[in-house]
Design a protein around this nucleic acid. Structure first.
Lengths: 201, 201, 201, 201
DNA sequence: ATCTAATCGAGACGGTACGTCGAGTCTTCCC
DNA sequence: GGGAAGACTCGACGTACCGTCTCGATTAGAT
């Protein structure tokens, strides 16, 4: 079961959850993550930034990683819809462009931090997967499957998605070369050559 | 300046550095990383495993990340030579196979841990780059450049290397799908289609 | 001004105070004190035991000590009338016997808890004094003063009361030796020797 | 086993305990206890006052009560030797005088606090008993037993000690009447009448 | 054969953040 | 308007690890 906030759609009797406080906490988490990097994010710092108390944080999230994951989810929930330009190759290119822009924004530090946290905390790993990775991949997969005729047969789409996104994550995480729009173009071209049904050259 | 052990080639008067202790500490770091994951690598744990004292660790390394990086360097120094089968595609495939095997071994946790640490610690990032990433890429690049005629012209080899290795790192770090030899084959085929000089199909 | 419940004899407009809830809260306080000891008396525990809410408790009492004091007052209101056997010495003995029985009953933990609370909270101290100690002493004093001829002249009755009751409290609080009926007899004899008008031996 | 500091008479290998820090912590505890009363004493406050860290406190004492008990023991270790005036009655009187002075000093708050804590914490109770009460009683008992002929036969000395000390504790804890030297005299006279071998009156 | 200096182990030190708990207050719905 | 439910702020708890430090013991080269 992924790490999520309590589902309080059922309106109980007591004082309802303070949604403003929730929003302030998530906002403060993102800011702290962007400003201080992952290990610099302290529950006490979040609490102070948010004008909330630590107890409130721990009432709703089991640990600070969960807070940051939910913050991430909130902040990127509507972002990055898979484009629909009429051309699959163009859709892919635009999608990678957008993702590059996201990773290069301050939000990129959030990804770095969460992927780092996921390496040693299975709960974070699972949450990152179910909250971010898998939904994004499902969208992208659907976007690609709209054009079955443009692709070679017997392609493993999971592998294709990896080939498309992995290089961006890789440059984000390793930083040996800059992460640029041009790089996204190069990746698009290279992968396209490997998956398209066109007779190349 | 990368993180390295103190260079004590100048032989002073007092008791010399205990090389056995150094080896035990590095070994213990690797073991802790493999067994317990990154957060399990506390200096106390290393010291106890190694039968050393924390002071000894901090005398020779500025912080625990430096210890782990040096441990990594020691342990992979001779690993993963770029193969030479006579065929570039086969060389690439074998190289990816070997890398998959490495990442799937207990050593994979070391990579996960260090990449995680690098996300928030620029010193670790730089050290990981200079100790592991850049040398490996240089070897691989040289291996590829032996066959200039098999490749398309105007290829950005850095991008090609990313396209080859990134998917493996990606599956290691995200874990959404298993990291297998077969996956390495798929990546090889896909990238090969995008870089080889052959007239495809 | 001693700690007391809000005096709501003035009958206002809305729903009147729920006397049952009040009784349940006081009862729950006593039980918690007897079963769990003083630190076990948390407002949450009282509320749960009583099926009440914390808000109700704090509406009617300023803090939990006030609750416990009122609980004590209710529970001991009619207890320990000063006996009237016709003999002062016998009256004293019986009174000490009764007090020993009270202190050894579960109620004894209530005394321990409240005396403890009084040490650091002047409000509790004053309330314990006015609700329990002073009234009890007044009764006892009247009981003794019925027999002026049996006592030496110029006795400080306050001191005599201390000499009678203090040893019982002392054993209750310190617990170095058991608090028994026999001990009450011994104290009676010793004090009697010091206060009676008889020619001893 | 009473709560005590680790007995480190055996000189181990590592860095030795910082005796100054220990002294500063105990001193800070006493000051905090006298200034703020028992529940106002915070480990964080002690640590700050003492210029120590919380970890140091918890390394050597299991909880703050133990700190305060040891502080008490240190501060009263050599106090209150049983006097030796040549007359038992006079010895008793002087001993009670001294005890009254101790209880009326700022140190009295320490006693109030610890007795309070003992009511709900068996560890404190046992420690208070073994560190303070029992040793003091043993001394007093020995002081009294030097004069066997002045006392009636078949006296229960434990009860006598209670009769002597309990009234002082009682006035300290309840505070219904002041605790004075004169009161100590009265108690001495009353108890003496009950225990001495003289033909009274 | 000392003397000297740097090393080793052990482990205590001041800090800082963790995640928990209770006090007392506040907010909502229900009666 | 009272009461149950329960979320809220505040602040202390006791734990864990960091990186530093101070010991006594050990181990060479320098004297």
């Amino acid at each position: 079961m992924p790490i999520e906030a309590v589902d309080d759609t059922v309106r109980g009797r007591g004082r309802p959850r303070d949604e403003e406080a929730r929003a302030r906490i998530l906002q403060a988490s993102l800011e702290a993550l962007e400003e201080l990097g992952y290990p610099g994010v302290t529950c006490e710092a979040i609490a102070e930034k948010a004008g909330a108390s630590k107890a409130t944080i721990y009432r709703w999230w089991p640990h600070k990683e969960a807070v940051m994951l939910e913050a991430l989810r909130e902040s990127v929930a509507q972002e990055l819809p898979f484009p629909d330009s009429g051309s699959l190759k163009e859709d892919v290119r635009i999608q990678l462009h957008n993702f590059v822009k996201l990773l290069k924004s301050p939000r990129g530090r959030v990804f770095k931090g969460l992927i780092a946290a996921a390496q040693s905390d299975p709960k974070v790993a699972e949450a990152f997967l179910s909250i971010w990775v898998l939904p994004r991949r499902k969208f992208a997969r659907r976007g690609i499957e709209r054009y079955p005729k443009e692709l070679r047969r017997n392609l493993d789409l999971e592998m294709v998605l990896d080939a498309l996104y992995a290089p961006l994550y890789y440059r984000l995480l390793i930083g040996h070369e800059p992460l640029t729009i041009e790089f996204a173009n190069q990746v698009t071209e290279l992968v396209w050559a490997g998956i398209s049904n066109e007779k190349n050259r």
